[in-house]
Design a protein around this nucleic acid. Structure first.
Lengths: 246, 246
DNA sequence: TTTACATATATTCTCGTCGCATATAAGTAA
DNA sequence: TTACTTATATGCGACGAGAATATATGTAAA
């Protein structure tokens, strides 16, 4: 509770406590579609199924620290901005015991995403489209373990709700990118084709983009200019790590 | 985790587990301002301070069930739509032990809100304005227990983020209300004065309002028409109880 | 060297939404 | 009957977004 006790001498240590975990939704962009990093389970339950990377929250670390530790230990990545997504507490979501899981989401550019995927065994990526299905590179639907398909659904909705007015889109891009790349990100998240001049105007008028003067290499046609993301304007009233939640 | 174990024979039962609680942000409208229901602590720690109602999550109930139970047992209200807000996991947010708290928010019309407040001892309401301060009816700032001021900040931001495109505003109104009442709700949440004709057009064009033909009673001037809320259109792709989070 | 071609970038037009001002309607109270 | 207050309706201008089109600039082929 942290607030008020049922009775003054209520002793919570007598009661069974649930385990608390963090699950990570690690998202990248591959082939114009959203992609999520998954780990294949090698033990029961749900052996062979694909699952989100996760781990227990230790008694002496915060939720954010646990999420960052799991990201580092299991995927070998660090220094990423993790955003809390939602907390899942169904009774039987894990058959072994009562587990409450706090889901976190992080976005990666293609290079980091590939590096994370190559960091360990039984890691893979799956596309993660608007219809809620998760498919491997061949297009075969992938059954996910536990309630992880639900978690992915929440992540997709969160992205869709925030892409229009927040800066999350830049998390899926490398440091330098073209307006076309940025539009690809928005179109992948929204599953909609956007109007090019309008998108361009909107993004430039926002003042977040810094032209570098450099041009896109390896273009078979006229190369586009490369931009950098200036960084978010100071969020006026955002409580620490609150997340706006669409 | 629910996903992948650090090692196949990892035994989480050996580890200390945190306690998990739910804290409730129960919001109403009083005097044109947002108001939150608080309970005065009668025991250490933080004795005398005001806190959000809350309680432990039992091993055999979901988070939603725990939140609804606390709402029923401590405030005497039921049947309200609770929305998960955020999960707070700082190590020392409660001095007694490690407690992770999942915050839920619910909105009430003035009558239900008053009924809830009158349902038990040491209950009170406090205004809950845009500057982040919490004040009693006399305007005196109220110090809150634990990290509950932070939780209130997240609740306010969630409301601000959702009021424009969701139907949460109706949760603060009785079944029948005037457009003026609805505008008061929006202005209280946004802390902005809105343009009346524009607001009126926007709300009517949305198709959510059903005119009742009845008129506001006890008006000292021309009475306004009373409307009902038609109910939300079927949300197309919303995963169960996901919440959009601004 | 010239031409075709593909894409980036810029411009213009239109339309819908919103803020603002104003006009009209409909109650109460003197 | 008149004054007053608020609800409701309408017209105008600014702004933003979509669509179409024009221009610029690179590569690749003739």
């Amino acid at each position: 509770m942290t607030s008020s006790d049922p009775s003054p001498d209520y002793d919570p240590t007598q009661y069974d406590r649930p385990s608390v975990t963090v699950d990570l939704v690690l998202i990248g962009l591959a082939g114009g579609e959203l992609s999520v990093l998954l780990k294949r389970r090698t033990a029961a339950p749900q052996e062979g199924r694909w699952a989100l990377p996760g781990g227990f929250v230790r008694i002496d670390e915060t939720l954010e620290e646990a999420a960052n530790r799991v990201l580092r230990e299991k995927i070998g990545l660090t220094g990423v901005s993790l955003e809390q997504l939602y907390t899942f507490g169904a009774i039987d979501r894990d058959p072994r015991m009562r587990i409450i899981s706090v889901a976190y989401m992080a976005l990666f550019d293609a290079a980091s995403f590939a590096r994370g995927m190559a960091s360990g065994k039984n890691l893979g990526t799956a596309s993660f489209a608007a219809d809620g299905r998760v498919r491997d590179a061949a297009g075969t639907p992938l059954p996910l373990a536990f309630d992880h398909a639900t978690i992915l659904g929440v992540a997709r909705e969160r992205l869709r709700g925030k892409i229009d007015y927040s800066d999350i889109g830049f998390g899926l891009l490398p440091e330098r990118f073209t307006l076309r790349h940025l539009q690809d990100v928005h179109e992948a998240i929204l599953s909609v084709r956007l109007n090019k001049p309008a998108f361009r105007r909107r993004m430039l008028d926002r003042g977040w983009l810094v032209p570098t003067g450099e041009r896109e290499p390896d273009a078979s046609h006229r190369p586009a200019e490369l931009f950098r993301y200036r960084g978010a304007p100071p969020t006026p009233t955002a409580p620490a790590s609150a997340g706006r939640h669409a």
